[in-house]
Design a protein around this nucleic acid. Sequence first.
DNA 1: CATGAATGAGGCTTCATTCAT
DNA 2: TATGAATGAAGCCTCATTCAT
Lengths: 202, 202, 202, 202
Amino acid sequence: MLDAATAVFSERGFHAASMDEIAERAGISKPMVYLYLGSKGELFSACIRRAGGQLTEAISAAAAPELPAEQQLWAAVQAFFEFVGEHRDAWAVMFRQARGEGEFAGEVAGIRRLVVDNVADLFARAIHSAGALDPGPDELRALAHALVGTGESMAEWLLDHPDERPETAATRLMNMLWMGLGSLIRGEVWRSPVPVPLPPGQ
Amino acid sequence: MLDAATAVFSERGFHAASMDEIAERAGISKPMVYLYLGSKGELFSACIRRAGGQLTEAISAAAAPELPAEQQLWAAVQAFFEFVGEHRDAWAVMFRQARGEGEFAGEVAGIRRLVVDNVADLFARAIHSAGALDPGPDELRALAHALVGTGESMAEWLLDHPDERPETAATRLMNMLWMGLGSLIRGEVWRSPVPVPLPPGQ
Amino acid sequence: MLDAATAVFSERGFHAASMDEIAERAGISKPMVYLYLGSKGELFSACIRRAGGQLTEAISAAAAPELPAEQQLWAAVQAFFEFVGEHRDAWAVMFRQARGEGEFAGEVAGIRRLVVDNVADLFARAIHSAGALDPGPDELRALAHALVGTGESMAEWLLDHPDERPETAATRLMNMLWMGLGSLIRGEVWRSPVPVPLPPGQ
Amino acid sequence: MLDAATAVFSERGFHAASMDEIAERAGISKPMVYLYLGSKGELFSACIRRAGGQLTEAISAAAAPELPAEQQLWAAVQAFFEFVGEHRDAWAVMFRQARGEGEFAGEVAGIRRLVVDNVADLFARAIHSAGALDPGPDELRALAHALVGTGESMAEWLLDHPDERPETAATRLMNMLWMGLGSLIRGEVWRSPVPVPLPPGQ
DNA sequence: CATGAATGAGGCTTCATTCAT
DNA sequence: TATGAATGAAGCCTCATTCAT
């Protein structure tokens, strides 16, 4: 049922989605939807929470805590792009639809905060393990926030360019993040600290 | 009138916004809104186009074409953050609301494309003037697209942290863009190629 | 529900009729009307089509095809006047309301054409069986069209004179049609080729 | 101004006609329309009354009172068809639009009554001058009413068949009226009691 | 448990009508 | 006098939500 709702919400948006269409696409009757979820708002909220859970789950599962920070980041970024590619609807609900609905923006902001905090933590550990000057947690969170935005933007790009592979986007993001354009200009290129794991089934 | 509409759309979203509220907040009656703009959709579209025009205008005005690319980029980024801070509603309409409304997503995508193309061009010129290897236009546009996403995300951060000055965000973006996190870790910092102009009144 | 709609449309006309009143008079709520009929236009159209069906049905049922043409005509004319007397609303919708609404004039014209064609055919057979000169189909249809107009006008007269019996109007129409005023002046009078069937209950 | 109003009313009907369009087509501003005619209803009423006046005028002018009744009838019928052909809009307003609008049906009924009374009077005089049995005024008015309906129907036929000349319709009507279908079957045909007057300007 | 049937409420849109100039 | 500008009122339609079965 959440699948159907997520699909409709992602296509139409919260307000334009009709409970009729959701129920129909779920193959059940409208009163059932209300019995299980209570109201349109709660249904939307459930979609958001499930999508958020899946996303954070996917990222956490990829970034094994025993790995070095840079490597965790690389894994997380890859997992993120893969998630977006495989859950287009869930992604659209969170990133494109829920953001504008004041009533639900908080929920998606909470999910985003989880990711940002994770990333900020990885930044901190990477800096710490390099023995560099600690920029302070606020600065780190600002950077992490920015990185997540970069990823989101690249995710949209990925969805608009079906030929592109997630790994390409991931590499591009790491390059931009780790090297900066200046370094790129100087011919430096970031390389995966570990051999790129083959996609499953290849 | 577009001000009122932009305000309401930014708060409520396209569907949840009511023409009644827009008219009331504009201080006129509903039939006037229809007389001048035609329909809710055209009103929304007009808000988007005006916001887009203002944004691209602000960026173009800041990035004087005779300056070096890096400097133009710096000026454009600053102008962008200033615009967002000063036109919160317009920004919210474009970035948070119009994206999810299929019917209007195209318009905001068009505006975004303008900005991305500009940025990609600046990238190309920066790389060219550095005599570095040309990465090809597609790669450049992908990078520019990513950078714009970074800026959008930072803009949201800025709106959530009213104490932060736009220059700070701009510097942070240029650092991340130009130096990369790796360089930052090594203690390198990007610096404005020109003295930062003082904000008016300081 | 079509009854209620026909009643309201007949009193107010298409534009002046409000869906609110129709729903109220039908004893249901407005959304039900939309659920069953779709829109005001389709509702009006349904009323027209039902009325047309009833009318043509009544006429066809009366004019048994095995009878001679003159007798069929007589039966049809009677059936027509009885129909109008018993379905005032349906008649008003077709004859007084739908004619002026460009969008629906075609439907009522189609119904009328059915009747006219039937009448023209009866004319043709009457003439043929009398061995008279065939005036050609166009001329016949013109005459039939005129006769139908005569009937329509008499129907209105009937509605305005509730004391008058339908048989009187039917006889008058046959007289005018068959004898012409000239013959009437000469004292000739048309008589029903069969004994007038008594109305039910008398 | 009445021309414009009549045109719009005839195309759209009373309710669907908008004062905006009427004013625009009249080449004046809306407040002027209200200044001169007061309200939409009065404007419609004025259109009806003018059309009715023109019609009765045309008929009266044609039927010179010193002529014999049959000849007056013939002249009146011709004048009627010519009027309809030359004032399509006025005709449509009266016959197709005003009939359904309860508020105005009375006005058009009044006009119609004038014509019917005239016709009934001609009938009476024709019968009287033939020395035949007087059928009584009510019967006469019923017949006259029927004849007018025949004429209206033929008028519509004429409007739908632009190739047909008004004289043809007039002859057909007189035939049907005077001879009846029975006489027609017997090969009798009504002929104009006077040479057909040439249309003006020929 | 599951649903067909039903509705109150509200939104977009338009129109007859009137000021203020 | 003539009009551009403005509006209260009302209509069509749809939707989230709930009974009664």
